[in-house]
Design a protein around this nucleic acid. Structure first.
Lengths: 346, 346
DNA sequence: GTTAGCACTCATTGACTGAGAGTGCTAACA
DNA sequence: TGTTAGCACTCTCAGTCAATGAGTGCTAAC
């Protein structure tokens, strides 16, 4: 990052072209540059430089006799070394702060994430995504079994991330609530602090040997394990899909439909967002760097959110490659930090 | 319904025009009708009849020298008296049956409804909506309180619809789990069968007098009541929004954006769907019958789903007024019944 | 190395056209 | 009196064509 590949003047021109194109969505010509930005250069000189930049793959032309636009490589260079970090405006800051006001009742996870997605969409004007906390990363805090009827018990699992999960178990034998209370206490004390990721067959076997609740208990425990594993662990919240309609590149229905299709397919989105989890903190994917053919000419800016140093999930924004990176990066980064902070307090 | 307002020939023509327009999305001319449907009438005669139908408000013309299309009034008449009920094809039937196979593990509510929305969208090719079961209609089955830490307890409320709700309560005093178990048993026995709608201050007061758990208990109970009331009770699941892009009337971005905006606004959708709950069973709203200005030229077909005769929620489809009513009505009706049936079994 | 000048390319726009589909009206017909 | 044929008229849509304007590459001069 930041390795200098281009001489300063070329850099400047690449920057100006990119900035301008991001703002106007129109190919940028040499005359425009000479006029708008006082570089002390004539259009002809700029043309020469731009021709060079095109040859080395940073710029491209939609067609002869049009201005230049950045190639994916150009965007990458721009993002890595040229982009000037933008500050959040006071309004934006106030807006976000208000939403994450700790005075807000500790709402359900659900609506917290939903609201966060809305915030992100509202601030960036792009479709926004949030990946829910991964259950595997969470550690057990409490387990409680409640008798429902003769052959059903309800398992209540509370994780240290504040996540609560209900699991309905079918049991061959009837437990009294007293039995279940004893078992609950036992399980809670044994499993407290264990992460769900580690809660595998090994631990279950160990519990079986230590416990003295009869062999029916073994079956129940096994059921709990499998049910917990089967729980749909990750979800994606999406908001602001309409925002893409504001982007001129999606005025052609076909392009739009393609992106829209992805935004409605949770599986695909999960893939995209899980990529983001690989790397702590901020992540920018441009064009083909996103591993999905359908999102041609899209970029994704994501940031992980953490509690106690554990990466729980990610928030992100999906937009055209001609995205206002400077702004989006700032917003996404900040919102991710706020979300992490908010969850930590709870 | 079914009141005969038009003479048979006019009815026939209105029906043909509507059927044809629903299929082709093109204004229907007299020649087309004469050619396609053997009415034994010349185009000229049909023209005369259509002119009459236009005058009495059942048909309209996009512009002179175009064919006719049904007005909202025309659609209404069509839906009420002319439409021929369609049967589900074997494929469709098999598809739905497979999804509601009782062998499917009793998944979480969440994903059940999500899947149902997908089914509806896939079958109708229109955006589909489902309103989650209203909590108020449900009756208590179990209440269980679990001690979390010195000043938090987790309330677990199980309703007879299979709905499970977790509520985190802050308590001024520390309860032992033993205390909580006693309280849980007490509450469960007292509240079993009470509907959430009836669970108001009156019942809480009665419980307070009957219980002998000290005055701290009163506060906790009060907390439970308010928290339960505050729970976000209704949600809307949406799927298949892209489907509207297939409809020619939404090729103009503006129209599309309008509808899309609504589909992203949960509050608006809640309003729309709550209308549907007013009336048991199937409901068709055409054009301005939907109480929302933004859905100009849209229709909504909804059906309530029930468990034990209680209306829990509704499923529905939102599409252009030029909607394949015959098909949609059949599908929506059937899916609603399946969903109700599935929930009853659980 | 920089710049002015010029010929060239390409997308966009608006005006115009003809074809096609459909209507309303009138007059003839059964 | 209801039905039909014929005809002039209207309106949309797709296509053609030329003008416009923004931008380029190249060459030659500074």
């Amino acid at each position: 990052m930041g390795r200098r590949e281009l001489d300063p003047r070329k850099e400047k021109i690449l920057q100006v072209v990119t900035d301008d194109y991001i703002e106007s969505a129109e190919p940028v010509g040499s005359r425009t540059i000479a006029r708008k930005h006082k570089l002390g250069l004539s259009p002809a000189t700029i043309r020469n430089e731009m021709a060079d930049l095109e040859e080395s793959g940073y710029l491209k032309q939609p067609h002869t006799s049009a201005g230049r636009i950045p190639s994916h490589r150009g965007y990458r260079y721009y993002v890595n070394t040229l982009m000037e970090q933008k500050q959040l405006t006071d309004d934006e800051l106030a807006f976000i702060k208000a939403e994450f006001d700790p005075k807000h009742k500790p709402a359900e996870f659900d609506s917290l994430l939903q609201r966060t997605t809305k915030i992100l969409a509202a601030l960036t004007k792009y479709p926004s995504l949030i990946l829910t906390p991964r259950l595997q990363e969470a550690h057990f805090r409490h387990i409680h079994l409640v008798s429902m009827d003769t052959n059903h018990i309800l398992g209540l699992v509370v994780m240290d991330t504040g996540f609560v999960e209900n699991i309905l178990l079918e049991t061959p034998v009837a437990y009294t609530q007293d039995d279940l209370n004893k078992i609950s206490t036992f399980l809670s004390s044994k499993l407290q602090g264990v992460s769900l990721m580690d809660f595998g067959t090994a631990i279950v076997n160990q519990l079986k040997t230590e416990a003295q609740f009869g062999e029916a208990f073994d079956d129940t425990l096994q059921l709990l394990l499998t049910a917990l594993g089967k729980k749909k662990q990750e979800r994606i919240y999406v908001d602001g899909t309409i925002n893409i309609l504001e982007q001129p590149e999606f005025k052609q229905v076909e392009k739009f439909k393609l992106l829209m299709g992805i935004l409605e397919e949770e599986g695909k989105l999960l893939n995209l967002m899980n990529q983001a989890l690989q790397k702590r903190g901020l992540n920018i994917c441009i064009g083909e760097e996103i591993n999905d053919d359908a999102v041609e000419d899209c970029s994704m800016v994501t940031a992980t959110y953490e509690v106690d140093g554990r990466i729980l999930g990610a928030v992100g924004v999906l937009g055209p490659t001609r995205m206002d990176y400077a702004h989006v990066v700032t917003v996404v980064d900040f919102v991710a930090k706020c979300l992490g902070g908010f969850l930590t307090e709870k």
